[in-house]
Design a protein around this nucleic acid. Structure first.
Lengths: 219, 219, 219, 219
DNA sequence: AATGAATGAGTATTCATTCAT
DNA sequence: AATGAATGAATACTCATTCAT
């Protein structure tokens, strides 16, 4: 399926159509939202008739799922790289936070999509991506648990909540970051990992409700 | 537009149809997403025919905009209450974080909608809500700036980024919180304000890129 | 749903739209075949936009199913009328053959559809109509069994095959009969019932293969 | 169009692709119906890509027409064989009924197709097949006329209707016969020819409407 | 207030057919 | 002979919106 090349190591000058379709879809789905975007939009962007798209995809949802599959591959690779490092828990968390933030910033559309549009999958695909999201949560919870075990964070810290907090803050990066701003993605990733480390290492934990002194706001 | 009652404390015996429509829309838009949900869905939920909804709304987008207007009223009230308190900056930030988180948790659908579906507004409505979002960012940035001026946070902290971080983490609460879980909304709001305070007060700031030691990941 | 009338006994001058849709569909499906006919064709025939048809139907298949349901009602009524008659088996078979043939001839399109297009139903609807067809077969087999028990047909007659034969011959009437031909539907129905009676009452039965003397033609 | 072999009795070691295409199409068109079946289905069944089919066919309709041409060749051969026999009219009718029934049973898909899908031909092809069908009707009418002339059937028998009746009953065999049932095709063909003979030889004819005593059922 | 019929533009998807390679 | 990409027109179905009653 991939074109034979004279020089296997040479840079891919020409992307094939299937990749073009995926890239166009990432862009369109990101800009208009999956539900609002039409297959026609994607076809226009690629420069083919909409019927022709169906050589490359099965359904619109299939197109979304394939984008997500690529994202999962990439993030899985990142997590494995970090797991292989021989460093202490605090450093591992810092590197995770930085690398993960950077990936989000450098793949704005792709990551934004992954975070915002997964609800539009159905059936088994929905089941699978939900499981995958759960795995991310566990991975980060484990990272933070390790920091607690090293004595670098409050032993009462609710690490599951802390993990949600961390993931949320990273996931949401694409919603405000604009490419070409004054600060480089690398710099922002550094800031983000600092904020995360500060939060994990210095928050006083609240594993249990401390008292009944609840001040409830009316709905 | 909704009639104000003479006796605010009196039990609401009868909701009028207009409120019913808004509440139904919040629920439907939250569950299916604005773009995917249909006016038919809302009408079914209210128990009238589709055409009849147009006695209460002008367009589907108008319905969304009115939901947002209510949310803005409520959050504006919260911000003013907090501004009126005579307390130091750290406490003000803590109370803001706690109250805001609690409002999100107690108004899951409404707040989730506000965060996720604002893109579907157009024209002047989009302009207005974008400005409103910007105002929230400034408000929180100001809160954090005050903490820095009090010497309770690293003077090099990038307070704008910190504000994004804080808002992100709160905004995203509805995406994982399930009503009826083991911990009360109040407890989670406490944990969240602790995490936020820990982050703001103890992160080392990184106002400038420190060096060229960038490790860039391939896209 | 039916329009109120001043004179309940008066002829229905104006059919309502739902009936119009069904009648148009019967005509179109019969002329073009269900698979080839389009919803557009039906809408054109009714004189509305194709989207408007969906006020009256759920899906194209639903439209077909409703046509069939009406046919089933009518044929069921015929069978019950005949069952209620106090006559001998031969007469019952004759009346059945005549009445059934006449119904086919007077409802050419409807009956042709029922016979030719039932395959396009799916799921539970297919199950139901298959069961219904089976019931017709049993009904006719029972009629013929009764004739045999009365001693008016060869006791070795394979009544199940004979029933298939009878039903086939009637079912197929709409495929060659043209409205407005020289002979009235009533006359043809008479001829048909004579042919059927002749066949049932005078064929020598062949319930078992009589010998091994098979002459097989090559495929 | 298909190459004739020098040695008809020799085993067919290799079918060529063109035959494969026709056989696959017979199967697919029979199972799904011509209108519903796609060229893709046929291609899948043959094991080539859709575009490749167009080396063997001109259009989808052409494919259908070629299947019918083969069927016509075969049935024409049968009719000529029977015409050549030196037997009386009753025997000729019996042999015709038996042989024709057997051909239907042994070529279920092909004959079912011929009977059900001829409407999808257009233009000159439709004209030709309609003429052909008319020729079959005449052939059978002639057979029955001969029986009448031999004094073996009621002289008032409407032989044209009787011919329709006979053809209908045979044509419809593939709609209920399942391969591998308890009775052999040969046995069923015998039963069918008995039923047909019984019908032709013993029905009282009704060449003219006998009276005005019509009982008309409401539509 | 509410109905329900109708609109008209849009959506995803299918498919027979063509054609350069 | 065969591929596989592309076409272009058609298909069933949806839906926000209007409006006479």
């Amino acid at each position: 399926m991939a074109p034979r090349k004279a020089h296997p190591g040479a840079p891919r000058v020409r992307r094939n159509r299937e990749d073009e379709v995926l890239l166009a879809a990432i862009d369109i789905f990101h800009r208009k939202g999956y539900a609002t975007a039409s297959i026609q939009d994607v076809a226009d962007s690629v420069g083919v008739l909409k019927g022709s798209l169906y050589h490359y995809i099965d359904t619109k949802e299939d197109l979304l799922a394939r984008i997500f599959a690529e994202s999962d591959d990439q993030s899985h690779a990142i997590m494995q790289e970090i797991a292989a490092l021989d460093i202490n828990a605090v450093e591992r968390l810092r590197i995770f936070a930085r690398t993960w933030s950077l990936w989000y910033l450098e793949n704005l559309e792709r990551s934004s999509l992954y975070f915002n549009e997964w609800r539009h999958l159905t059936g088994e695909r929905l089941t699978r991506i939900t499981a995958q999201r759960h795995r991310y949560e566990l991975y980060v919870t484990d990272l933070i648990d390790a920091v607690v075990r090293e004595g670098k964070a409050d032993p009462d810290l609710n690490t599951r909540y802390a993990a949600f907090f961390v993931l949320s803050a990273i996931n949401v990066l694409p919603s405000w970051y604009k490419r070409g701003g004054p600060d480089s993605p690398e710099h922002i990733a550094e800031v983000w990992s600092d904020l995360i480390l500060g939060m994990v290492c210095h928050s006083q934990g609240r594993r249990r409700p401390r008292s009944s002194a609840r001040v409830r706001r009316a709905a």
